[in-house]
């Protein structure tokens, strides 16, 4: 089901880190993974990420549940990039009819899969431990994003469970009036389209009402808003940002020292 349930309690150490600091760390690590095309750099980054988990207060069960799909995606990347690689280099490890897999292609595929894995895992660690309200506060206060856009988006995010429930309600209402897809794929696709349209219209209607409700409470009055919730950068937040950069530098440095580092693909 669709939820925004975080993978840790609100008091967990990682939940209390300033969201902007987390965002920075996630961006630094995934950017490093993106520019490195070898297998060692992402592996080192992944090791660093998992070294942090025990101290973060993240509950293991929910984390694995979220990561399951990501790793599946990473595994697919390894497979397709190995099998469909344009050129197979090095020793042939496996061959079946027209299908050939070489050591070179496999290493390259594995490197790509690891890269996906790093970006995905870092993303979950950063975002699934962040309360959207805190993120919005930090964005407006530390990054000085426009409060109107940020708070407007935050208010829309509250609609997510409502719209998800609405999807179900629309389906139910159609059933009550005798409309249902059944097993026929064409009818199903048609009903999907009409349900999607009903959802969009409902969403637009809610957006109009929400905007009216926000304006009625002075949202667009032109007065600079004050802030009820303060987000600030504390020394641990700075440490986390510096540590993220350091980890990236070390990972790149080590793999360069071993002579495997490759820039881009």
């Amino acid at each position: 089901m669709l939820t925004l349930a975080p993978v840790c309690g609100p008091q967990a150490p990682i939940a209390r880190v300033n969201p902007v600091a987390k965002l920075f760390a996630v961006a630094a690590i995934s950017a490093t993974a993106l520019i490195a095309a070898d297998w060692l750099t992402p592996l080192l980054l992944l090791a660093a990420i998992f070294a942090v988990v025990p101290f973060s207060g993240i509950r293991f069960g929910p984390l694995v549940k979220r990561l399951k799909w990501l790793w599946l995606a990473a595994a697919t990347v390894v497979v397709v990039n190995t099998v469909f690689a344009a050129e197979q280099t090095g020793a042939i490890l496996f061959s079946l009819g027209p299908l050939e897999i070489s050591a070179g292609a496999l290493t390259a595929g594995a490197a790509l899969g690891l890269r996906v894995c790093v970006a995905a895992t870092a993303g979950v660690l950063g975002f699934a431990t962040t309360d959207p309200t805190d993120l919005a506060d930090a964005l407006t206060q530390q990054l000085r994003t426009s409060p109107r856009f940020t708070i407007g988006s935050l208010a829309a995010l509250r609609m997510l469970p409502l719209l998800a429930a609405e999807w179900r309600q629309i389906t139910t209402a159609r059933r009550a009036r005798g409309l249902e897809g059944g097993r026929n794929p064409v009818r199903r696709a048609k009903l999907f389209a009409s349900t999607m349209f009903a959802l969009l219209v409902g969403a637009m209607r809610r957006a109009g009402r929400l905007a009216a409700a926000m304006d009625a409470r002075g949202f667009d009055s032109g007065i600079p808003r004050t802030r009820a919730r303060e987000q600030r950068m504390s020394p641990p937040d700075w440490i986390i940002m510096v540590a993220a950069v350091a980890v990236c530098a070390i990972a790149v440095g080590l793999s360069a020292a071993y002579g495997v580092f490759r820039f881009l693909s």
């Binding site: 959207p132 309200t133 935050l154 208010a155 995010l157 509250r158 929400l210 409700a213 926000m214 409470r217 002075g218 949202f219 009055s221 007065i223 808003r225 004050t226 802030r227 009820a228 919730r229």
Partner: peptide
């Protein structure tokens, strides 16, 4: 407007 009850009441005051 907001996800938490207190924040919702505070929203109008911030504005």
């Amino acid at each position: 407007v907001m996800a938490r009850s207190g924040d919702d009441v505070a929203f109008g005051l911030e504005n």
